[in-house]
Design a protein around this nucleic acid. Structure first.
Lengths: 167, 167
DNA sequence: CTGGAAATGTTACTTTATAACAATGCATTT
DNA sequence: AAATGCATTGTTATAAAGTAACATTTCCAG
């Protein structure tokens, strides 16, 4: 209620190039810290680093891009390190894997709900997380009709975001 | 109308172990032939072979499993061969890629509609294609609310199929 | 039966991800 | 502080998934 930028039921936000992105990052890191504290999980240097890099944009990031960005001429970070950090962040609901892209995005949903859908712009690459209640319901209902018990739903919609449509 | 086994709007079929699977295969190959004839596309030996192997079960099949099955001690088939056959079959709507599994299933939908959703059983691995009209609508509507223009939708639901639930 | 396009073969490589074990860090008990 | 033990990260190697580029073959139209 307090924060008009928080995603709420049925809406999704695209950000475009110019927005106060530091706030997005700040919010995400804040939430991560809070959540880990509550759960007694350790948000280590590496995990925080990876989370920051993922939140560097609203696009989905490839694991090996993270790897490159984490490595400098001195010291190269290896795949397992990144995948382990990603694993941790996913388990705690701080990032999502976008299966249709083999890539990762920061979770911008609110704490507990997790029937997220992803809107993926084919032009600019931005990914927006949406909590589409209607979609969730339709999925649940139609699966039930088929006698199927849904445990995890993946909905990834590729198309054109409002910003890119405007051009 | 004539064929009660054909999937129709809003329903999905799971097959379990005992069913007249030769019919599924026959139907799929028949459709493939028909469709290629209509379009002047060539259903070559390799493409037909791959399609048959995919229809060997109702599970999603990995490209490299196809590769193994296509190779014998004499002659090994290489990745591009399989991926090219898969590409062809996908372009013509004869198989689908299941992104969340990096695997492929035969298309059991009717000819032209293509808003398919996949129900994937985590126990037995069977994949069932569903044409959930409600889901499609909900997706379209909620994306539209967000100003997003959907070009391709990917809906993959992991859970428990009726057969496995019964056990 | 031949010229050209489509299909397949072949080699090499890229991208994505994980297994297995070693070393280090860090928190708690003694 | 030393000892214990588990969580985290480092390291090496390899698996799994997919593609680029060019050579060869197939096959159909003329």
């Amino acid at each position: 209620m307090a924060n008009r930028k928080t995603l709420s039921g049925g809406s999704a936000a695209f950000h475009g190039t110019r927005h106060a992105h530091a706030r997005c990052v700040g919010r995400a890191l804040g939430r991560a810290e809070e959540l880990c504290r509550q759960r007694g999980a350790r948000l280590t240097y590496m995990r925080r680093r990876v989370l920051e890099l993922i939140w560097d944009s609203h696009k989905a990031v490839k694991a090996y891009d993270l790897l490159d960005r984490l490595s400098d001429s001195e010291k190269s970070v290896r795949p397992p390190t990144v995948y382990r950090a990603l694993e941790f962040l996913m388990v705690h609901g701080l990032v999502h894997r976008v299966d249709s892209l083999n890539a990762f995005v920061g979770c911008s949903g609110s704490d507990e709900q997790h029937n997220a859908q992803f809107l993926i712009c084919q032009e600019c690459g931005e990914v927006s997380e949406m909590d589409g209640a209607m979609i969730g319901q339709a999925v649940a209902r139609q699966a039930a009709e088929a006698g199927f018990n849904v445990r995890r739903q993946m909905v990834e919609l590729h198309g054109e975001c409002p910003g890119c449509a405007a051009k």
